[in-house]
Amino acid sequence: MKHSVGIGEYRVVRPPAVLVSLGLGSCVGVALYDPERKIGGLAHVMLPSSNGTEKITNPGKYADQAIKLMLEEMIKRGASKSRIVAKIAGGATMFKNSKNSIGERNVESVREILKKEGIKIVGEDTGKNYGRSVEFDTETGLLHVRSFKYGETVL
């Protein structure tokens, strides 16, 4: 069963569910997984941080909020933080001549937040200049990354 995780959303599930996020450009897909309990979550984050935001209407779009909330929900469902690992994809810069660096900043922020939380990144396909779609299989913990440029890679 495939569940779509839209822009600015996050979702926590158990197998046999597969979580899908389509068309990550500057956005970053953050997959968290407890391999022993097979509890997995995927967030489709848009922005590096909610710092300085007066009114947070949709916490899922910020890297800091989405990761925090997803971890809480996974732990509530029985995952252990010490076992949770992360795989991340996206954060591209789609146009070469731009000063816009939101993709890079998204990836940096996700790495920093995971480090602070003590969660190891065990797979990463980020940056460059192309869009990616991801499928996170909570049975295997594998993150399938598809792009027009390179086809499919598995993290």
Binding site: I7, L22, G23, L24, G25, S26, C27, M46, L47, K61, A92, T93, M94, F95, K96, N97, S98, N100, I102, G103, N129, Y130, G131, R132, S133, F148, K149
Partner: peptide, 19 residues
């Protein structure tokens, strides 16, 4: 500048900075 890719990936680039 030109990019040929998934529509949503191209658009998130121009929209996120504003967001």
């Amino acid at each position: 500048a030109l990019a040929v890719d998934m529509g949503v990936a191209i658009l998130d680039f121009i929209m996120l900075e504003q967001a």
